[in-house]
Design a protein around this nucleic acid. Structure first.
Lengths: 191, 191
DNA sequence: CGGGCCTTTGACTGGTTTCAACTTCTGTGG
DNA sequence: CCACAGAAGTTGAAACCAGTCAAAGGCCCG
């Protein structure tokens, strides 16, 4: 299971098996059931998680009490509320397993120690954040560029498997509209 | 002028004056007039820019020919199309000066050399991207959480000076609605 | 002083939400 | 293996947020 992380790190930097074993020691493996929370609103988000298997989502609850999903994390993705993780302020987000999942987590403190001991890992995390930053820029662009209906069609054609994998109300929550409207969009195309 | 960058780097890592001089050698200073483009759509975004003075914006042109501003960068902020910068694909964005500005730019190649020579700078850029990633998460949250009108009021109360500093049509472009609608919102409150 | 860009105003339109009722699916215990 | 309850998905009507278009007014800068 930790091989997944090793392979991932090696896509970005060189790291010997020995060093990887050292790196891995800073992590904690966590198994999550479907709908189990890894992190809840109000707490400081003190750990950064790498998805080995399964799927997580990050969401917040708006004034009306509706859950708004702002991000999914599939296999090989890192997820945390980096606002809270960086600033040590209480988080406004939940992180929850969409399905049965295995993750490797590292606390902020352990990550600091890891980076002191293995400075090469600064490069790895720099590249991870740079990529995530790029993905966020792309995401923001699509939020500006498309109507809700277009977003659905775009997302469904880019990630057909993923659309099958998750329930519709989560997809609607991620795309930023109501389940009712998603239902309406879908019925248009089928005819 | 390069002192601004030195101070900024020192908020994140320790760096001697000597080393800073070495670091600075990888950068190119660029002066921009109001509305001058630093980067245009279709080109690979090959440089990463630190705003020393002034203000930049990144925008794209949608199907209707309307400019959509997705990001501003004020003093002390870094800006690039990191999708293009990371993947070496042609960019879909423009980067333009909102007002007369001074920036320090570094190309992707020079940044690689810089990081090889001064590995401590990996940490600096890791922290920059982590912070930017956090800011993007926050941004995405506000895009989901607020109506257009609420976004205006929130933004105006958080950044009253900045709202004065830029023309209204750019603010509307950033907030994701039309100048006409912004005008309508503003007239409500004045009464 | 003039021209062009920016902002305002108003009428009309449509995409999306809201609400409520109904149907279908899913999983859990008997 | 069935029954049933709760969760998820569908449908339709009414309301609303925000866009579009067109025209007029204000203001900056040459």
């Amino acid at each position: 299971m930790s091989d997944i992380l090793k392979q991932h790190i090696r896509k970005f930097i060189k790291l010997s098996d020995e060093d990887f074993a050292g790196v891995l020691a800073y992590f904690v493996a966590v198994d999550l059931d479907k709908k189990q929370n890894l992190h809840v609103e109000g707490r400081i988000c003190n750990s950064n998680s790498f998805v080995v298997k399964g799927c997580l989502r990050m969401f917040f609850v708006n004034e009306k009490g509706v859950e708004q999903t702002i991000q999914f994390a599939l296999e090989h993705w890192w997820l945390a509320d980096y606002i809270s993780f960086s600033t040590r302020q209480p988080s406004e987000f939940y992180i929850q397993a969409v399905e049965k999942s295995n993750v490797l987590t590292i606390t902020a403190e352990e990550q600091e120690k890891l980076l002191t001991t293995y400075p090469i890992m600064e490069r790895y995390f720099r590249l991870i954040h740079q990529r995530a930053h790029a993905a966020a820029q792309f995401r923001i662009k699509t939020l500006y560029n498309f109507s809700r209906e277009q977003m659905y069609h775009q997302f469904a054609s880019n990630y057909p498997d993923f659309v099958q994998r998750i329930p519709q109300y989560l997809l609607a929550s991620f795309l930023g509209f109501t389940p009712e409207y998603l239902s309406e969009i879908r019925s248009k195309r089928i005819s």
